[in-house]
């Protein structure tokens, strides 16, 4: 029988960690772009757009991420389209991330005093121009800390992609456990690697939060 040394286990986990990182990055950046579009719709004061975003956000915040992964993985297949675990995980995590980011950012936009909207309105700026030149530059300063903080949730969320067969850190851990029968060692290492990914981010989020409090 094939023997796994400690280093074999660790190196295999680290290789799989790359996919956790890649999936996190894609989910975060795609989710960020979709979230930004939704943010414009959500704060546009155009009723149909606001309603659409509200329902979208309620759906993705109000159902488990795992169900969303299943829906994308098995649901799209019903229409005869072959969906790889990779594609399903990317789509589900992107939409899930965007829903949360939109709500985080909406809070930041609403924290900007009404006078900023009125002054820029009075200068004949359109809604998009107000957002771009006046509101978002200020809101983004407040948004950095909670956004970085939320990225930790995205990284941990990618673990669920293991259930639909996407080989990332958690899935690799399960496979190595099946081969080695050393669950405590394997899952301890898995947890440690997640911690090493997440801790610097939450530490950084805390740090910038403190710095922004004294900023102009």
């Amino acid at each position: 029988m094939l023997q796994f040394s400690f280093w074999d286990i660790l190196s295999n986990l680290l290789i799989a960690t790359q996919w956790t990182i890649v999936l996190s990055l894609i989910a975060f950046f795609c989710g960020g772009i979709v979230g930004l579009v939704l943010l414009f719709m959500r704060t546009s004061r155009i009723a149909p757009l606001e309603w659409f975003t509200k329902i979208y956000i309620e759906f993705f915040q109000g159902t488990p991420l795992l169900m969303q992964l299943f829906l994308f993985f098995f649901g799209i297949a019903l229409f005869g389209v072959e969906v790889s675990p990779w594609m399903a995980a990317t789509l589900a995590l992107t939409f899930w991330t965007s829903a949360f980011l939109t709500e985080i950012w909406r809070g930041c936009v609403e924290a900007i005093p009404k006078g900023q909207w009125e002054a820029s309105s009075s200068l004949a700026l359109s809604y998009i121009e107000q957002m771009r030149y006046v509101i978002l530059p200020q809101a983004s300063r407040i948004a950095v800390a909670p956004t970085v903080g939320f990225s930790v949730q995205v990284i941990k969320g990618t673990a669920l992609a293991s259930i639909i067969g996407f080989v990332e850190l958690t899935k690799a851990g399960t496979m190595l456990n099946n081969a080695t029968f050393r669950p405590f060692l394997v899952y301890s290492l898995v947890a440690l690697i997640y911690f090493c990914l997440c801790f610097p981010l939450s530490w950084w989020a805390k740090k910038i939060e403190g710095r922004l409090n004294v900023a102009r």
């Binding site: 005093p113 006078g115 900023q116 009125e118 002054a119 820029s120 309105s121 009075s122 200068l123 004949a124 006046v134 200020q138």
Partner: peptide
């Protein structure tokens, strides 16, 4: 609004 300017009590500078 290009032709009608407004100044506010609270300044509202950016």
């Amino acid at each position: 609004r290009r032709h009608v300017g407004m100044v506010f009590q609270q300044f509202n500078l950016f």
